[in-house]
Structures are given as structure tokens and as C-alpha cells.
Nucleic acid binder design. Structure first.
Lengths: 132, 132
DNA sequence: TCACTACTTTACGTTTCCGTAAAGGTCAAT
DNA sequence: ATTGACCTTTACGGAAACGTAAAGTAGTGA
């Protein structure tokens, strides 16, 4: 049975994801994760771990913690009222649009930087030719 | 001759790029742009305008102002020493790598959000079918 | 001359996302 | 019993990127 651990200590998650305990506690203060307790110590479940992965990826793409919280909450709500679902779709679509625009910007920036690199490299090649 | 203006006031640039004058002055304090002066007022050239566009796109992809400054400076330096050029290439390549990783994260996030949207939409469709 | 608009500087305030002590609790191994 | 590793809370600190008055200047039109 390939079954991974069902519980993680704060230190384990820190090591796995290369974040500080301070950060994890901060995310908890901000209600992004809510690990159980064994006495005073935190016990993270597999679900908490998945949420953490989501949080960190969200950060890498430039979402704020409150954006991330909102999206995570939307996943969880399971609210069946139609209006609520429409709002959910709207919010998500908004983020998707932002991310798509961001991808356009990223591609343009990569292109420009790579062009510049090529230019500088060609100069370096010139000199090394002369330098021989 | 299709020639655009050669000089812009701070207000014009603000309108064009939807940024506040405060932001532009802040970028100037941080040495990201250095407009001329006519008396006390700032006169932005076409080059300043291009730099501003670069700055704002850099921001949109999540670069810090100091990252942006560094890259802009690299464009300008024209330092011909070989070691300097190698450093330049290294820095740029580093940013390119970061941006490529970011694109991977963005694609994954978009995919996940769109999947979720599809799911919620299907539930909404169910209910509207029943609701008829 | 008066008013208006666009510009200027100086300077303190704000939000986000944690870093970094400080001071201590818990449990296992020596 | 004491060390050490790992955990806890509370609370002040700090960089980044501006926001936001406050108070003054410069040109323009009526």
C-alpha cells in the first residue's frame, strides 16, 4: 500500500516546502490553513498540505494572500445557491483573465531579455575572436 | 511623417499609463527614470516613456523595482569589459529562468481554476435544467 | 487681478508579509 | 537530572511601493 503519512509536524512541512514556521503560523493567523492540535502542537493533515502547496504556487504567480484565501474558500464553500455560484465563477474567471494577461507579459519580457542576451553574447564572441 | 511627441508632461504619462504622479516621482527617486527639467517641471522624453513601459511590464510580471532597475541599467551600461558582460548575461539568464518557472506555475493555476469553473458551471446547469 | 489648473516638495502614514528576538513548554536520550 | 531538539505565544521590527495631506509655485484665461 503506497500510502503517505496522514499527519505532518510544522517542521516537516517547513523542510518539504522550504518555508519558515513563522510563515506557516502567519498563514494560519490569516485563516489560510487551520491545522488540528495535539495539545499545543500543530498537526497538519494531507489536506492542509495540499492547501499549502496551493498557497505557495499562488504566491509564486503573484497572488496576494487574501486573493489566495478567497480562492481556497471558494473551493470549500460548497454553497449551492445559484447566485453564490455565479459569483464564484465570476471571481475565478477574473483571476484567470489576470493570469492570462500576466502570461502575455511574461512571454514578452522573456523574449526581450533573451534578445538582449543574444546581443551581448555576440559582442563577447567578437572580442574573443579578436582576443585570440 | 508619423512622428510622435518628443516630450511628455508628468500628467500625460499618468493618463497614458494609468499611474499616479506619486508613482512616477517615486521611480525617479529610485533612479529608474531621470526626466529632464524645464525649470522645476519634469519633461519626459520618448526614451523615458519607453523605460516607463518597461518598468510597468516588469511590475506586472512580479519583478521588484530593484530587479527592474538592475535590468534597465544593464541595457544602458555598454560596459565593454568581458567580465562585466558575462555578469550581465548571468543576471539576465537568471531572470529568464525565473520567468519560465513562473509561466509553468501560471499555466497550472489557470488550468486548475478553469477546471473548477467548469465544475461549478455544470452544477449550475443541472439546477437550471431542474428549475425549468 | 483673480481664479483655476497643473505642477512642485516634504514628510508622515499604510498595507503586505513575514523576520527576529524573547521567554518558555514538552519529550526523548544520555 | 540535564541537555538538546522541536515546539509554543507574544510582540516589536522592517523592507517595498506607494497613498495622502499640507503648503507652495507657475502659467493661463477671463
Amino acid at each position: 500500500m503506497l500510502q503517505h503519512k496522514t499527519h505532518y509536524s510544522i517542521g516537516e512541512l517547513c523542510d518539504e516546502f522550504s518555508v519558515t514556521a513563522r510563515a506557516l503560523r502567519f498563514y494560519e493567523d490569516e485563516a489560510l490553513i487551520a491545522p488540528e492540535r495535539r495539545g499545543t502542537q500543530r498537526l497538519y493533515t494531507e489536506r492542509d498540505r495540499a492547501r499549502l502547496a496551493w498557497i505557495l504556487r499562488g504566491k509564486r504567480v503573484g497572488l496576494s494572500l487574501s486573493d489566495i484565501k478567497e480562492l481556497l474558500d471558494l473551493y470549500d464553500i460548497g454553497d449551492n445557491r445559484r447566485t453564490q455560484r455565479l459569483k464564484t465563477i465570476e471571481r475565478c474567471q477574473g483571476q484567470v483573465d489576470k493570469l492570462k494577461q500576466q502570461r502575455v507579459d511574461i512571454d514578452a519580457t522573456i523574449k526581450e531579455l533573451e534578445g538582449f542576451i543574444t546581443l551581448v553574447k555576440s559582442q563577447t564572441a567578437d572580442q574573443s575572436t579578436q582576443g585570440k
